[in-house]
Design a protein around this nucleic acid. Sequence first.
DNA 1: TTATTAATGAAAATGGTTTTCATTATCATA
DNA 2: TATGATAATGAAAACCATTTTCATTAATAA
Lengths: 150, 150
Amino acid sequence: MPGPYRWRKRVEGHFCRWTMPREAILDLLTRTSQHLTAKEIYASLLQLYPGIGLTTVYRTLDLLEKSGLIKKFNFGRGENRYEFASENKPHHHHLICTKCGQIIDYSDFANEELELVKKTAKHLAEKYKFIVHDHNIEFYGLCQQCQKRQ
Amino acid sequence: MPGPYRWRKRVEGHFCRWTMPREAILDLLTRTSQHLTAKEIYASLLQLYPGIGLTTVYRTLDLLEKSGLIKKFNFGRGENRYEFASENKPHHHHLICTKCGQIIDYSDFANEELELVKKTAKHLAEKYKFIVHDHNIEFYGLCQQCQKRQ
DNA sequence: TTATTAATGAAAATGGTTTTCATTATCATA
DNA sequence: TATGATAATGAAAACCATTTTCATTAATAA
Ligand SMILES: [Mn+2]
Ligand SMILES: [Mn+2]
Ligand SMILES: [Zn+2]
Ligand SMILES: [Zn+2]
């Protein structure tokens, strides 16, 4: 019920009404570096905001994604994961451990990668008349811990 | 019940027993250029093999994927899609239309891409002690038809 | 303050996938 | 070729992330 609505101004125009659950969900995502599922977000907010519903979490995540404030990922483990996105935050991709599910953000070789991505996107636009809006790059393998334990 | 079991020899060692459903599913995937869902495979085989069960399709796809004969993709539309994979088949990535779901294979700039991927993988191995086994690149956007209609 | 109606949350529904379990079919062995 | 051990199958039920429904609540404009 409280809430200074820190995000209201930055979010104006995207939403008809700005509410407590929306504030809480967006705020949580801006504070964590993790890639959370809807259930994890729900569980985390339940302490602060006992009345919140999982349905609202799903609906809010959809809205936030559609307005470009967050990004949705499916790392192939059944549930979607979300992370905050903004212009300030540097463009990055993911390293996914196929054993434990750990996700590492990396942005190495961002320039070279961007160059290749741009070039490819331009080429694909010509060859297939396909307009590229976004791209996704991910590496799959084993994290350090999972290499150790066999 | 018939079936010359065309794939048995190439598949030896991966499976305890080679069966009609396994032959049929693998054969279908080698014959199509599409990225099929379990249900699509099931529907397609039902004509040829009326007794087949969707459960078996799911189980077989898991096995085929684990033995590296096919690849599993989640293009963010709820169901997984599968495609045949082999050394002969050139390495490629995907262009996904976010409106109609069409999937286009492309392998342009494969050399440059592979170079960057290798370099990045090596760097990530050093920096994060992460062993890269595979990678995935996809472009999202609008196909030609979907650009036209609106 | 009030009225409008967008947003919420509980419960039920949905849909892809997995599990269970009795039956069937494969294949090594005789 | 016949046989037995057991891997594989398929129908039904369970599972689980997500969506839909609908009565209630709360945000905002007037
Ligand atoms: Mn990330
Ligand atoms: Mn493909
Ligand atoms: Zn790991
Ligand atoms: Zn399209």
